[in-house]
Design a protein around this nucleic acid. Structure first.
Lengths: 340, 340
DNA sequence: GATGTTAACGCAAACGTTTACGTGACCGCA
DNA sequence: TGCGGTCACGTAAACGTTTGCGTTAACATC
């Protein structure tokens, strides 16, 4: 079975042409008569012929594969990205290899060994916090690099404006009259600086300043990037002697945990405390969570699109995707002072 | 950079031997002197030589790639599986290609064209509802097949006992004294029969029978596999003239929607209605959802393990993974009759 | 009718491995 | 001394494409 694979020579023979012509016909290159091309395509289809990627690559063709490097495929954000990227690239008939590099040692090994060498045409880095020395290793890769959900060096990238997203969220809260606004940050990557976290914190601080509100360091909690983390963060902030009346959460998943923790304390959302997330996770609609929506799938598609362009060595522009405030039922004006 | 790749001939030349010897030395085959082998390994290391997978494969070696076919990488269950599989296979130095086949037409095209041919050594099918004619196409694949989260034909597989899981859940509810127990099914795949859904329904019915409770068809709602679907299903069941006092949900994600819908109706969980899910989604702990836990990551790892064994053409046994009731705060004895 | 142009193809040399087979050196033993 | 047997290695033929270059025939041009 596996040794009876049909190859180009078989197709060529059936079509009464040479393999060279078959190769050209299949890839849509010029130099093949229209009638011949159609006959070849027909025969190839009939024989269910699939080109041998190895042979193709070996003789100079592209691998028709792209590597997607992602911290963890089992987290919502990355799963969305991955799914969108795969769909777009599959449509272009490219294969997608995944590399998870969540753990520090795995990531370091990845950038030391560059296992994608000779295996892919393009590498897409998803929202990867990367120390400079590892980023510089990418030069040795010898393939195109595209970045999604952040930026790494000067590689083409698609991202959102995390600072503006946080500002939008805080502005919504100040607009409702909140003056004591807390933030729950997510810090899951121990050894490196995580841009989204830093930028959203900056946005939070900037918008507070813009609203002439004081910066209160005790209003900022750092927790692991999980719902439990969110619950923990909310507990920490709501235990303060003068607790916030509103919480900006790093993401909706964090917010889900915060919502629950607040409820457990016997407080109501939004009457006692307002909560706002970021992402627009599917559950956010169900739970009535106000959030700043970013279209993760669209970012993934865009990254895939960029990868396709780079495959043809065409220039691509960096893209900043838009975001949008989605008001639901988890935010409202603060309770009258002293009510809590 | 990309055309200066070092190849085996370079290593051979530096070592003063032929490429054949280098090939043997690198793969640990006999027929190479100890001193020679060491010298070769040293030189290869020094030159940062990486073997060309294409050339290797072309001349008879394996691809060292496995294809994972999954409905959608952006859904929790599949993301978990995928992540676990990738981690295990990466550790064995294999690459993982993903193929999403959620849409019916995409899936049909996949099984018609079998795009994994010549590209992978093993295919892992994840929880894929498959009409028989498509399953039979797999024979033409010419590679090993392993199934995770279900079973397809007689391919080696790892799964859970969906019937028993549902029975466990229902038994927990009847044990609390519930007599009016509803079920929210998830039916997202239009054209095919989805085993987990059917089996869990059967388990539900079996356990009702075992408890001498009547089968009430109006207590079973079918909804799309999303939180919104869960909300919809709960609304439907709770609107009945004689509504259930407990709901078994196809999955935790469905249950999250149900929880919220119940709250919106002004009912309390678990005082008025008990809710139980299946999976043990990360949010379940946070939200206090009672559930029947299955270890999805372990299933993925097991599937990867099976794939590795099949790579060596060793026999593997089918595996049924265990499950476990996790009681939290969403289930309690039913309210006294007539209270609602 | 000689010449140039162009489209449609075939030929054959890569591409970088793996592996069956061949060859010499060396050893042991009768 | 001669002979069979290992061992360590080299030779060269695959594997299935891509692509530069060459060839042919048809056709237009003057």
């Amino acid at each position: 079975m596996s040794r009876n694979e049909i190859n180009m020579a078989d197709v060529a023979q059936r079509a009464g042409v040479s393999v060279a012509t078959v190769s050209r016909a299949l890839r849509g290159l010029p130099g093949v008569g229209e009638a011949t091309r159609e006959r070849i395509l027909e025969i190839a289809e009939e024989l269910a012929y699939v080109i041998s990627p190895e042979a193709s690559r070996l003789s100079g063709g592209p691998t028709r594969r792209v590597g997607v490097v992602v911290p963890a495929a089992d987290m919502w954000f990355y799963g969305q990205m991955l799914a969108a990227i795969e769909r777009r690239l599959r449509a272009a008939d490219l294969d997608v290899l995944i590399y998870q590099v969540k753990d520090v040692d795995v990531r370091q090994r990845f950038f030391r060994q560059l296992p994608t060498r000779r295996k892919v045409d393009v590498v897409i880095l998803i929202a990867l916090p990367l120390p400079p020395e590892e980023a510089s290793r990418l030069d040795h890769l010898g393939v195109e690099v595209v970045v999604a959900g952040g930026s790494v060096r000067d590689f083409p990238h698609v991202e959102v404006d995390d600072r503006a997203i946080a500002r939008t969220a805080v502005a919504h809260l100040t607009g409702l009259g909140h003056e004591r606004i807390g933030m729950i940050r997510a810090t899951s990557y121990g050894d490196v600086h995580w841009d989204p976290d830093r930028l959203r914190l900056e946005g939070y601080q900037l918008e507070l300043a813009a609203a002439d509100l004081p910066q209160r360091p005790e209003y900022v909690a750092s927790v692991p990037f999980t719902p439990e983390g969110g619950a923990e963060g909310a507990d920490q902030l709501m235990s303060l002697p003068d607790p916030p009346t509103a919480l900006l959460c790093f993401s909706d998943e964090i917010a889900f945990g915060a919502l629950e923790a607040i409820r457990r304390r016997g407080l109501r959302v939004p009457e006692d405390v307002s909560v706002i997330g970021i992402d627009d996770h599917p559950l956010a609609a169900t739970l009535g969570l106000t959030t700043v929506r970013q279209d993760v799938a669209a970012q993934g598609e865009m990254a895939a699109e960029m990868a396709l362009l780079r495959l043809d060595h065409r220039r691509v522009e960096d893209v900043v995707m838009s975001h949008e405030l989605v008001v639901r039922t988890s935010t409202a004006p603060p309770p009258a002072r002293g009510t809590t």
